[in-house]
Simulated assay, not measured.
Amino acid sequence: MIFNEGSDAESLYFILKGEIRIFKNIGLDKEITIFTRTKNDAFGEIGIFSGTRYSNTAVAAKSSQVQCIDKHTMENIIAQNGEIGLHFTRWVAESLEASKAKMRDYIAFGSEGAVASVFIRFSNMYGIVTPRGIRIKQQIRLSDVSKHLGISRETVSRIVNKWKEDGIIQSENKFFLIANIAYLQNLLACNHCALENCTL
């Protein structure tokens, strides 16, 4: 655990290695993943730039190493260097846009659309185009998908099994191949979305 939702926002964090999951509690034993941040990324920006407390929880999803800069030092760096300030402004705006796009997918298109959103985001981050479809290089556990979305594993499993029956996806040892990416994209009206916002 790096920080809890509601705790004092005191630092901006930079990831040297590992993976950090940023999530929000949405009810009893229910969470929704806002971001997954990895090496050379940063997190904690919403807390230190927009209020006095963190609005999400951050926990290491893998063995990780992070560095932090306290809020006061970060504010001085930005105030003294306009170029760094510009980069941070763009980064925070992109973070907000990405989280808005994710919430749109999760809320507006029902459970099937939400699961489709996660699979499309996995394909954008870890997918390889093959003659049979898009092969995702990283294993996908359905329990992780349910944790991303704040819905039950049973619901995710039912949707994924239906897709398998319809030939939309295939899987072996938690490695998935998306045979019909157009079906998933049509669920979410993806033709108007920016690819850079479509990651986990």
Rank of each mutant, 00 (worst) to 15 (best):
residue 8 D to M: 05
residue 10 E to F: 07
residue 14 F to Q: 02
residue 14 F to S: 02
residue 15 I to S: 04
residue 17 K to C: 11
residue 18 G to L: 13
residue 19 E to W: 02
residue 21 R to Q: 15
residue 28 L to Y: 12
residue 28 L to C: 01
residue 30 K to R: 12
residue 31 E to A: 01
residue 32 I to W: 00
residue 33 T to Q: 05
residue 34 I to T: 10
residue 35 F to M: 14
residue 35 F to V: 03
residue 37 R to D: 11
residue 37 R to A: 15
residue 37 R to Q: 11
residue 40 N to C: 03
residue 40 N to M: 09
residue 41 D to F: 01
residue 42 A to F: 10
residue 42 A to P: 00
residue 49 F to D: 04
residue 50 S to R: 13
residue 50 S to K: 14
residue 52 T to S: 14
residue 52 T to Q: 12
residue 55 S to P: 14
residue 56 N to G: 00
residue 57 T to V: 06
residue 58 A to D: 06
residue 59 V to N: 04
residue 61 A to E: 15
residue 66 V to F: 05
residue 67 Q to P: 04
residue 71 K to T: 04
residue 71 K to H: 07
residue 72 H to C: 06
residue 73 T to Y: 03
residue 75 E to H: 03
residue 79 A to L: 11
residue 79 A to S: 05
residue 82 G to L: 06
residue 82 G to K: 00
residue 82 G to I: 03
residue 85 G to N: 13
residue 85 G to Q: 10
residue 87 H to W: 07
residue 88 F to G: 01
residue 90 R to M: 11
residue 91 W to I: 06
residue 92 V to C: 07
residue 93 A to K: 07
residue 93 A to D: 06
residue 94 E to P: 03
residue 95 S to F: 04
residue 96 L to P: 06
residue 96 L to V: 14
residue 98 A to D: 08
residue 98 A to N: 07
residue 99 S to Q: 05
residue 99 S to P: 11
residue 101 A to N: 11
residue 102 K to M: 13
residue 107 I to K: 08
residue 114 A to D: 04
residue 114 A to C: 02
residue 115 V to D: 03
residue 119 F to K: 01
residue 119 F to H: 03
residue 120 I to K: 06
residue 120 I to V: 13
